[in-house]
């Protein structure tokens, strides 16, 4: 299968009283149809903003988005309306992302009413019940209100609503972060099954590396609006070349008492994304930074086949020369 979505040099700047906040600053990638791209990073790295500009919940400030062969960087109202049927989003918080005053069946059916995708009441009802069945919600909750349901079931409503228009592409923004582990596994399995059965393409945004490893084919690591490393899952978890990715991976506590790993503790915290200088954004926290890191932005380059890293000294740090 070919490429479903490509973004080139995508940017989003927000105007703030203190200056221009570079939330997403020149990100490029491609996703093949039927695959999952995981976007990982800590709070404030721009991963949610990236997801939102791709589905046009936010307008981008520069760059190109190519979906299914068409340039959709700046769609007009009618194009956007059509586009929404193809791309959907699952939100992080199942408590605030669904209308508390609507019944479950109405929440799931609303996208179909807006887009008039059915010809009879019977067809509509049938579609709603089949969606509920697909996501594992029992028929008896269809008349319930969201507050009567637990977080796991609410997130299933969010998934069902995203599927209502038969999209090709779904952005999942931290869909399991608000859930307990035993419930989290249920939703992750559901998303994987749906992909297998219906061929969805996902962007999966999360801060949880174990989850992203489990569900993604490719992973892109972000830091302060920039993509710092990108590769397929297997390769990335075996070899990390960027100092930030190394530290991030070593920081995860592992549920294993025998395998102690050497932890890299980073100094300091995220620097400000407002009016950033021409420099590596990670340099102030990096253990390897040199003068060049503070005066020049590193470009993303292919270090190994299909493994991209944005670091001036990637070869030196990893003894690749």
């Amino acid at each position: 299968m070919g490429t479903l979505l490509e973004v080139r040099d995508l940017k989003k700047y927000f105007k703030t009283p203190k200056g221009l906040l570079h939330a997403v600053d020149g990100v490029s990638f491609k996703i093949e149809a039927g695959k999952t791209l995981g976007i990982v990073g800590e709070s404030g790295c721009g991963k949610s903003t990236l997801g939102r500009i791709i589905v046009h919940l936010l307008e981008n400030s520069g760059g190109q988005i190519i979906f299914d062969g068409k340039d959709i960087s700046h769609p007009n109202k009618k194009e956007l309306h059509e586009l929404r049927k193809e791309m959907q989003m699952i939100f992080q918080d199942p408590y605030s992302s669904i209308d508390p005053r609507m019944r479950v069946k109405d929440i799931i059916g609303e996208p179909m009413i807006i887009n008039k995708t059915f010809s009879s009441k019977a067809e509509y009802n049938k579609k709603v019940s089949s969606l509920m069945e697909i996501v594992g919600l029992s028929e008896r909750v269809s008349e319930s209100y969201p507050h009567e349901l637990d977080g796991g079931r609410r997130q299933r409503i969010g998934v069902a609503r995203a599927l209502a228009l038969n999209p090709k592409f779904i952005v999942c923004d931290e869909p399991v972060s608000a859930l307990d582990v035993s419930i989290q596994a249920q939703i992750l399995n559901l998303l994987q099954d749906l992909q297998k059965d219906m061929g969805f393409t996902y962007i999966f945004i999360t801060h949880n590396l174990s989850v992203v490893k489990h569900i993604s084919d490719e992973i892109c690591v972000m830091y302060l609006g920039k993509m710092v490393e990108k590769s397929n899952v297997k390769e990335l978890f075996q070899h990390q070349y960027h100092p930030y990715t190394k530290a991030l991976l070593s920081a995860i506590p592992r549920p294993n008492i025998h395998r102690k790993i050497e932890r890299i503790i980073l100094k300091g915290e995220l620097s400000s994304p407002i009016n950033p200088k021409d420099a590596c954004r990670f340099a102030p926290r990096c253990n390897y930074s040199e003068d060049k890191c503070f005066s020049q932005t590193p470009l993303i380059q292919e270090v190994m086949p299909d493994h991209f890293v944005a670091c001036h000294f990637v070869k030196k740090i990893n003894n690749l020369e």
Binding site: S182, I183, A185, L188, Q192, S210, V211, R254, P255, N256
Partner: peptide, 23 residues
Amino acid sequence: IGLFGAIPNLDEDTERLIPIAGL
């Protein structure tokens, strides 16, 4: 045992998680 099965593991490759059914 169920809790351990439900968390994705960074050190091993698991095709599918084993959720704990119900609530």
